[in-house]
Design a protein around this nucleic acid. Structure first.
Lengths: 336, 336
DNA sequence: AGATGTTACCAAAACGTTTCGGATGCATTT
DNA sequence: AAATGCATCCGAAACGTTTTGGTAACATCT
């Protein structure tokens, strides 16, 4: 049916070897025959069978994107699209295709990571949204498959990762609140099944320490990154520690949850309480008051993850790549 | 390196043919040897090389998802994730893998649709977000590749589509406004490069006609589906037709744009003007006032698209599949 | 003149499966 | 006893490439 390299060979009166080598730019074919072959290939609308090629080269020019929690309980992954768009852009140059795996941690049949990748013979994979407790983590620590993780610090011979500088970002956000005059600053953190939670806590502590504000355990709570999580944590925190005047959050969704909770408690934001988030999702600029937050360059995170994966596949050494963040000042935090 | 069917054959003392047939459930192998082979395969951690299999069967068990405008100018596709999640769920049962193509209409090298699919040898494809003017449309009308379109009505031997009943949905939304007592109802429609725009206009007209309200051309404007589009259209429409008391929109983003515009013009929603959207994106329930809108079951649209594609691949006849919608009543429209 | 190098080409193997067309041995039917 | 049927197995071809290890013809160097 489809035209193969054999057809071209017949047409051109040469061997399949020569066709292959001509089309792939090998030097041992005369310019004359190369041109002839190229022309015929063009005319016959030939396009190489990537399956057959993959069988012999053992390369598919395909990478996997494995994402956990595409659908978080109650909400869709808030910035997956941005990461995805970045990944696609990063892959475009080298013409890698992307095959999407969504893993559901609650599902029964958890295909092991290596099997997942090997079955489809991907050349490498980008991994996003894994919890620290996910069994994939252990597997990836020792894998030979070129892998780039997003927001999970694992580094070995074939595995690198990209993330924001979460310590620094949390440091800046907290410092900003301190600069506004706040001293009793709560921190509604993400669950401690995420690497970023530890880093952000460290940044928060660092800012307090640097400004000689004593750290209090009761000012820090953990929950999942959702709006409901923020809502509940805020109520509890304010109820138990009414002296708090500002709350930093490990996600915008949680910050928005706090915002709602504050409103429901009859508090004005930012007059009665200052709120700062993390992520800068689209919604954060649309709500009132606009949410002061840390912008993560998710598109760029995806883009660099893809670029780095390609470089690992090509044999370069994996690294940790840090993507710059930025404090976005809106109206949800103010001076006291 | 990896264990192949040959290794198993050697271990089991049978031919590769028998191993293949045993593993694939053919009847002409005794239960005894089948069990033996299965056990060995298990022990050796064998997993079949899908590339090699694909080469001979000419099937890859992979489908493509081609999506245009993943990143619309200024905004990310508002409900792509829901569709995607639905597609993945629909594919899971039959273990099809998903490879993601994002096509950028403004890009130079637009790979033809058939080439896109043939190069990677996908068994079929789901297509979303195409404009009517996209060259892919013509190609798909005559393609032999099993294809399911979302929101684009093309039907042939191998091509089906799924969508909401846009006529009926627009009819219901408009009828609802009429029931609330509105007579001068504007319609901010999407650009007429989208099939749904025509259908929604038809539904809008139908509702007016049924209620003996004369249709006025100046009450209907077209723009892209974005927030900015809504914002600008609303200002213009209200300025030129101040008697309008309600506006129906072809997307929630546009409705939200109108909301902003109304606020900027000092109008109260819903007291001075009623607003109705289309889509029910997440944001619509979070803003104040909550947006009355038509909910599209995007997850289900994706799910059914996937299921239908699989059935077409298996030889069944393509159809038009209609996914139910629902009028979601919130606070942005009220009785006059 | 012989050795060496260079250029342009090719036959055949290999990749790991599936599948086609038997083949073998045994039991059953005529 | 021959023919038939059945259950179980297998050899080899095929899928469309890339790659290995050549060869042949000619030019250049010693």
């Amino acid at each position: 049916m489809a035209v193969t390299i054999k057809d071209i060979a017949k047409y051109a009166g040469v061997s399949v070897t020569t066709v292959s080598r001509a089309l792939n730019g090998y030097p041992d074919v005369s310019e004359e025959t190369r041109e002839k072959i190229k022309k015929i290939a063009e005319e016959l609308n030939y396009s190489p069978n990537s399956i057959a090629r993959g069988l012999v080269t053992n390369k598919t020019h395909t990478v996997g994107l494995v994402v956990s929690e595409l659908i978080k309980p109650g909400a869709y992954h808030p910035f997956f699209l941005e990461i995805l768009a970045g990944i696609k852009a990063g892959l475009r140059k080298d013409k890698y295709d992307l095959i999407l795996y969504t893993v559901d941690p609650t599902s029964q049949d958890v295909t092991p990571y290596e099997k997942l990748c090997n079955d489809r013979k991907v050349d490498g994979a980008i991994v996003e949204g894994l919890k620290l407790s996910d069994p994939y983590i252990e597997e990836i620590k020792n894998t030979e498959i070129p892998t780039v993780l997003i927001d999970i610090p694992i580094l070995n011979d074939k595995v690198g990762y990209v993330s924001s500088d979460n310590v620094q970002a949390a440091f800046e956000a907290t410092s900003y609140l301190i600069k506004l005059g706040h001293k009793n600053i709560g921190f509604i953190n993400g669950h401690n099944d995420a690497a970023v939670s530890f880093e952000r806590l460290e940044g928060y502590k660092k800012a307090l320490y640097k400004n000689n504000i004593p750290y209090k355990d009761e000012y820090v709570v953990f929950d999942d990154f959702t709006q409901d999580g923020g809502y509940n944590c805020f109520r509890k925190m304010i109820f138990e520690n009414p002296e708090i005047t500002a709350v930093f959050h490990a996600s915008d969704l949680m910050a928005i949850g706090s915002l709602k909770a504050a409103q429901d408690l009859g508090m004005q934001v930012p007059d009665d309480i200052s709120i700062v988030g993390f992520d800068d999702i689209e919604l954060s600029s649309l709500i009132t008051p606009g949410l002061t937050t840390i912008r993560q360059e998710n598109y760029k995170i995806g883009y660099m993850a893809a670029r780095h994966l390609v470089s690992i596949i090509k044999g370069e050494k994996p690294r940790h790549i840090i993507i710059p963040h930025r404090l976005i000042i809106r109206q949800s935090a103010k001076k006291i």
